[in-house]
Amino acid sequence: MKKKKWYDYLWIVSATYLILGFFNILFAWIGLLCFFIPLLLAIFGGDKLYCNRYCGRGQLFDLLGNKFHLSRKKDIPGFLRSKRFRYGFLIFFFIMFFQMLFNTYLVFQGTNSLKEAVTLLWTFRLPWNWAYHGTAAPWVAQFAFGFYSVMLTSTVLGLVTMALFKPRSWCVYCPMGTMTQTICKAKYSCMGCGRKKKYRREPLT
């Protein structure tokens, strides 16, 4: 049995994050760490250390699916793990993310008013006014509502696929995972190019 390290308990952070959003939506801003840390680790470290070690969400699904037996543990359908679906979902996720940023901008500009709601699965608008106490600028709160919507939606999708397939099925089509893997592959192939160029520049003997 492997000895557990501090980072094996990061599922507590993920669960706490989701719970905090029910009390004060401004905590949603903390979720940006889940975007920046994996990207920075991929860009500068050239690996998926975040997915492999620190992702609290993956740990949460692992715990619920394996320890709590909430997963059927069946193989994920082929289309869900296909490159087309993974990259398609990444693009869709990007579009929805930029739409959320644009909404924030419109509130910042004063064109739109703040909507105290969380949109689940990009469709269902849930009233969430109890979690905003008017302590921040409207655009700050709008971003928090939008970002929490992204986080809650991805958690719900992850829970559904956890239950239907294997515990960490979300990892297969997680946009951050796809993005960081793409960065790592690009980084490695570029390193390969660099080596080739360097090799070519070396004088022939």
């Binding site: 998926k48 997915c51 492999n52 070690r53 993956g58 692992d62 793990r81 993974r86 960490r168 990892c171 297969v172 997680c174 995972g177 796809t178 893997q181 790592c184």
Partner: peptide, 8 residues
């Protein structure tokens, strides 16, 4: 997908 579930 390089998630690392196997390594764990």
């Amino acid at each position: 997908v390089a998630c690392g579930a196997c390594a764990k």
